[in-house]
Simulated assay, not measured.
Amino acid sequence: MAMRLSTVILPIHRWAEGQKIWRRAEALGFHAAYTYDHLSWRSFRDGPWFGAIPTLTAAATVTGRMRLGTLVTSPNFRHPVTLAKELISLDDISGGRITLGIGAGGNGFDATALGQEAWTPRERADRFAEFVPLLDRLLTEGAVTHEGTHYSAHEARNVPGCVQRPRLPFAVAATGPRGMRLAARHGQAWVTTGDPKLFETGTPEQSRAALRGQLEKLDKACADAGRDAAELDKILLTGFTPEANGVLDSVDAFVDFAGRHAELGFDEIVVHTPIPDSMFAADPVVFERIATDGIAQLNS
């Protein structure tokens, strides 16, 4: 399978400017453009930050080929019933081009923005384990009633359902055993950012070894679920591995990075659209050359 290249466009731009970036991403030939689904995020907390679903809805109206999605949505401030309604609407508006990246969430600003105490890792995993199957049902069944530990639905209706059948694809972000099981059972793709413990002090070789280990765990989870792991796309979201700062330095650097990860088994590499004076700063000219030439070189 040919390697695919996608991008993340953070929701930091007023739409008069933002629409130009989404249009340009499609013109450059990206397979997909994703955005983060947060209420705010890290160093961007005190600057502009817009909602993911409205941003993707607007992006759907100014693009026509490129897939669109979240990397990632989490239960931190979402409920499956309301999220499902928004997703079927977004899938319809986009003509069936939506992928839902979904993860357990973290302990950042989203975790306490609604006034709650941040959940422990176990609580996040428990909620995620209930959230994903319920959302799956909500997007595939006409009416859903569910009484769970964390989420309830009472005759929730999502007619006519998704344009994509049986529902829009889930790209499940997971590294632990419980998340891997969810990916194996409900995912059409699996997402990772690598091993966070290696980001600042690890080596590229250690990072690839950790990713190889994650892929082996995914294989086992799929085997336990009676599923072939080859059915799932494997997506690497870059920017959080030891070589993060160098991936977009040149076309050659990108081709080397993507090639090494293709050898591990990844199908899709996701790079951040450059943002000046941030952790995602990069030369926009080189970025565009990577978009137009990098994957072509890799797949030639």
Rank of each mutant, 00 (worst) to 15 (best):
M1Y: 09
M1T: 13
M1W: 06
M1F: 09
A2I: 10
R4T: 05
S6Q: 07
H13Q: 11
R14E: 15
A16E: 15
G18E: 06
Q19N: 05
K20M: 01
K20A: 13
W22G: 01
R23N: 00
R24M: 05
A25I: 05
F30K: 06
A32W: 07
Y34H: 07
Y34A: 07
T35K: 04
Y36R: 04
R42E: 14
G47R: 11
W49G: 04
G51N: 11
A52W: 04
A59Q: 06
A60R: 01
T61I: 11
R65S: 13
M66T: 12
R67Y: 04
R67Q: 14
T70M: 12
L71G: 02
V72W: 04
S74K: 02
P75S: 07
F77Y: 14
R78A: 08
R78Y: 04
H79Y: 13
P80F: 03
P80A: 00
P80V: 01
L83K: 02
A84L: 05
A84R: 03
E86S: 12
G101N: 07
G101W: 01
I102F: 01
I102R: 00
A104I: 04
G106I: 01
F109R: 02
D110R: 03
A111G: 03
T112A: 12
L114T: 13
L114W: 02
E117Q: 14
R122K: 14
D126W: 03
F128N: 01
V132N: 06
L134V: 11
D136T: 10
R137T: 13
L138V: 14
G142Q: 12
G142P: 13
A143Q: 15
A143L: 09
A143Y: 02
H146L: 00
H146Y: 15
G148S: 05
G148H: 04
H150T: 10
Y151F: 15
A153P: 15
E155S: 14
R157S: 08
G161Y: 08
R167W: 07
L168V: 01
P169A: 08
A171S: 14
V172S: 03
A174V: 04
G176K: 02
G176R: 08
R178S: 10
G179F: 09
M180G: 03
M180I: 00
M180S: 05
L182T: 09
A183D: 03
A184Q: 08
Q188V: 00
A189H: 09
A189K: 01
V191T: 05
T193D: 01
D195R: 04
P196Q: 06
P196F: 13
L198H: 10
E200Q: 14
Q206F: 07
S207D: 14
S207W: 08
R208K: 05
A210C: 06
A210R: 10
K217S: 11
C222P: 10
G226F: 07
R227T: 14
D228I: 11
A230V: 09
L232S: 12
K234C: 11
L237G: 03
F240D: 12
F240G: 01
F240W: 11
N245V: 08
D249Q: 11
S250Y: 08
F257G: 06
F257H: 12
F257L: 04
A258N: 10
R260S: 11
H261Y: 15
L264H: 09
E268Y: 00
V271F: 04
V271Y: 01
P276W: 11
D277T: 01
M279A: 15
M279N: 11
A281R: 10
P284N: 12
I290Q: 07
A291H: 07
A291E: 10
A296T: 15
Q297E: 15
S300W: 00
S300A: 15
